[in-house]
């Protein structure tokens, strides 16, 4: 069996559900769908002076998408759009889309590297957050 994708760290990130839910009064919200697989992410943010003060996400999607949203929420507070782009770079490094070593917590997504059909699952929360911050 070559069951290397769902390693403990990814499963743990998904189960942690960091930031899962809604914000009572978000500054901005954005929804992104993956038309190919049907995954859906809604991100709420409260922004203060251009920086994320609070973040919440609702994911109707696979474990990878849930884990990515959870990981993103765990490092998003205090960052502006440029700071989130740096986190995205970590995610893209982890899955092999960019050169370099991925920082935490996205280094955990390295097993996704060889599963190209699942890369978008990891990146969908970033797309939603980018729109919310735009």
């Amino acid at each position: 069996m070559t069951d290397q994708l769902y390693q403990d760290r990814i499963v743990a990130l998904a189960k942690a559900k960091t930031g899962a839910g809604k914000l009572a009064s978000p500054t901005r919200s954005a929804r992104r769908d993956n038309p190919l697989c049907g995954d859906r992410v809604v991100i709420d943010v409260k922004v203060d002076n251009g920086k994320i003060a609070e973040i919440a996400h609702q994911v109707r999607g696979c474990l990878l998408c849930q884990a990515s949203a959870s990981a993103l929420a765990s490092v998003a507070v205090g960052r502006n759009a440029a700071g989130i782009e740096k986190v995205r770079l970590d995610a893209e490094r982890a899955i092999g889309r960019e050169e370099g070593e991925a920082g935490e917590p996205f280094a955990a997504f390295a097993p996704v590297r060889s599963h190209k059909s699942r890369h978008e699952c990891v990146l969908l929360p970033f797309e939603a957050l980018k729109e919310a911050l735009s």
Partner: peptide, 13 residues
Amino acid sequence: VHPHDVAQTLDSF
């Protein structure tokens, strides 16, 4: 368990 995760696991079998 999301259906995609079921299918991905099945692929490993």
